[in-house]
Simulated assay, not measured.
Amino acid sequence: MAGNVGTPGATVAGRVMAILDAFDDQHPRLPLSELARRAGLPLPTAHRLAGELVRHGALARARGDYAIGRRLWEIGLLAPVPSTLREAASPFLNDIHAATRATVHLAVRDGEQVLYLERLAGRASVPVVSTVGSTLPLHATGVGKVLLAHAPADIRRRVLAALTRVTPYTVTQPGRLRAQLAQIRLTGYATTVEEMSLGACSVAVPVRREDQVVAAIGVVVPTLRRDRARLTAALQVAAQGIARHLGA
Rank of each mutant, 00 (worst) to 15 (best):
A2P: 10
G3P: 00
V5G: 07
G6Y: 11
G6K: 12
G6E: 14
T7K: 11
P8E: 08
G14W: 08
M17Y: 04
L20H: 02
F23T: 08
D25M: 02
D25S: 02
Q26M: 11
R29F: 07
L32H: 14
A36W: 06
R37T: 12
R37F: 06
R38I: 03
A39I: 01
L41F: 03
P42D: 10
L43Q: 08
R48E: 10
R48M: 06
L49G: 02
A50I: 01
E52L: 15
L53N: 04
L53R: 03
R55F: 04
G57T: 06
G57S: 10
G57Y: 06
A58Q: 13
L59I: 08
A60R: 03
R63G: 01
R63D: 09
D65I: 06
Y66E: 09
I68Q: 03
I68T: 05
E74P: 04
A79I: 10
A79R: 13
P82Q: 08
T84R: 15
T84A: 14
R86S: 12
A88K: 00
A88Q: 01
F92C: 11
L93C: 10
N94I: 06
N94H: 15
I96V: 13
I96L: 13
H97I: 01
A98E: 08
A99E: 13
T100K: 11
R101F: 11
R101M: 10
A102H: 15
A102V: 10
H105G: 04
L106I: 08
E112Q: 11
E112A: 12
A121Y: 06
G122H: 15
G122F: 12
G133Q: 11
G133L: 07
S134Y: 03
S134W: 03
L138A: 02
G142C: 05
G142H: 06
G144P: 00
K145T: 03
A153I: 14
D154W: 06
I155G: 05
L160W: 04
T164W: 05
V166S: 03
T167R: 00
V171C: 12
T172F: 12
P174L: 15
P174C: 12
L177D: 14
R178D: 13
R178E: 13
Q180A: 14
Q180I: 15
A182T: 07
Q183H: 10
L186S: 11
T187V: 14
Y189D: 00
Y189K: 00
A190G: 09
A190K: 04
T191H: 04
T192K: 09
M196P: 10
A200T: 05
C201G: 06
S202A: 14
R208G: 05
R208E: 11
E210Q: 11
D211T: 15
D211N: 15
Q212S: 12
V214G: 10
A215Q: 09
I217C: 02
I217R: 00
G218F: 00
P222A: 13
T223I: 07
L224K: 06
L224E: 04
L224S: 07
R225V: 09
A229I: 06
A229Y: 09
L231D: 05
L231G: 04
T232A: 09
Q236F: 02
Q236G: 01
A238Y: 15
A238N: 14
I242A: 00
A243M: 02
A243P: 01
